[in-house]
Structures are given as structure tokens and as C-alpha cells.
Write a protein that binds this DNA or RNA. Structure first.
Lengths: 123, 123
DNA sequence: CCGAATCCGCCTAGATACTG
DNA sequence: CAGTATCTAGGCGGATTCGG
């Protein structure tokens, strides 16, 4: 199935690689939730606003495939499945927070830049 | 025109905001090139592997709109247009390098995780 | 040289319904 | 509860063409 970048080549642009892993619409939000501890499928489904069951499943599959999340099935009734972050993904926490901090700091400036730009273009 | 997130709401998830700004296919690569200094349109076009003229123009427009890049037109013949990074975007450099470092460190592990996962699924 | 406009194929997310 | 299967529409990106 799909596979944006291979992670098998030499040294292209590491940035794009990370983005290929966590840069999509839902991955980050899942990762953030899992930093607090393991979560069940339905916990994630209800906790993340607007995500569909399909996208949650697909995104979790990818995370699992890339070794960023582990999937544990408990043989119970009713069935229970827990997802947990791996140590590797946990190390993403700091860089991600740095990015988040940038957004918080520059949010107002970006908003103002947009208004200014749109105003001049409103011919 | 399009506008994923508004930057006008209270405090949703800053991460998604940054990703909305620089998380697409080309923005990062353009930004990285511009950290070395101002570049012309055609310099970027030829320097970035695989980008189309259309996508370069669109991506630059967005960067300009968000106040991350400035566009300067020189009244010459032939016409010359230079793009430069703004101080705000320059501050993205460090967080981005942190992400890049993560990718370099975990590249092998991710690759191995994928092979392992795909192997077990090759039923 | 720098872009805007148009056309168009592909991918992907969303909705919905079904299974273990 | 925790997924999978199928269908469809809309966005995105590439190619091409025209304008400043």
C-alpha cells in the first residue's frame, strides 16, 4: 500500500521525513493524547473532535507500522484494545512543543499579516 | 479563498496551526532555501527537485500572505523578483532543526519497524 | 522572466453499512 | 467494542497555455 518516502535512501531532507510521519491531519492529536498514557480505541474516537472511525483506524495502523505506537489486544469480553506511545515517539514531544511555542508566540502576527494581505488584494 | 484554520479562535492546538502553515509538501523546502538568503523565483524553481511552477507560485503566495516571506519586485528588464524570509519565519529554524534531528536519529528504527510490520502482514 | 488561468486525473477523507 | 468494506465527492497537484 501507500508509502510516501522510503526511509531507505541516503540523506535527503529529514524534515520531510518527519512530516511524512506526523504531518497529516490526525497523527499529532493522537500522539498528544497518548503521551498522557495508553488509551482505548473508543476513547480516542470520542476525544478527538471530528475524526471518523475510519481515519482513526488508518492513522493508528500507520503509527503502529512506523513503530511510534504499540497495539495491545486483551482477550476479554467485551474486547479491549489499548494503544500506547513508544519511547521513540515520546522523544518527539520536545521538538513538537518547540513548534507549538512558536505558533503561540506568532499567532497574532500571522493573523495580522493575513488581514493586511487580504485587504490589499481586495481590489 | 481557502483557509484551513483561522488563527482567530482562542487556544485550540498550536501544533495544528504550525502544520497548517508549513506542513505541506513544498513550504519547508522553500523556507530552508531562503534561510541562506534571498532567492529569485527561477532559482527556487530549479533548486527544488520536482516542484512545478504552479505549486511554487501558490506556495510562495501563501508564505507571503502569512507574513513568513517577503516579495520584492525590482523594476528592471528583464524583471526580477526576490523572495526573502522574515524574522518570524527565521525563528522556526531551531524547532525545525530539532525535528530534523529526531528524524536522523530514529530513521533506522522506523525503517526496521516498517519491515517487521510488513513482514508479519505478508500473509 | 514571472506569474495567472484553465483543464483534468488522482488521491483521500467522509459517510454509511456490515462483521467478529 | 473495535474494526473493515465500499462508494462517492472534493481538493490537490501536474501539464499546458496565455498575459505582463
Amino acid at each position: 500500500m501507500s508509502d510516501a518516502e522510503d526511509f531507505s535512501d541516503g540523506e535527503p531532507c529529514s524534515l520531510r521525513e518527519v512530516l511524512g510521519l506526523v504531518g497529516d491531519k490526525w497523527t499529532m492529536q493522537i500522539l498528544v493524547r497518548l503521551t498522557d498514557g495508553p488509551r482505548r480505541f473508543s476513547e480516542l474516537e470520542h476525544g478527538i473532535e471530528g475524526i471518523s472511525r475510519r481515519m482513526l483506524a488508518l492513522t493508528l495502523r500507520n503509527l503502529e507500522r512506523n513503530g511510534l505506537v504499540t497495539r495491545t489486544v486483551y482477550a476479554e469480553v467485551p474486547p479491549r484494545v489499548e494503544y500506547a506511545i513508544t519511547p521513540h515517539a515520546a522523544e518527539l514531544d520536545e521538538p513538537l512543543h518547540a513548534l507549538s511555542a512558536w505558533a503561540s508566540k506568532h499567532r497574532a502576527i500571522v493573523g495580522e499579516a493575513r488581514r493586511a494581505y487580504d485587504a490589499t488584494k481586495a481590489s
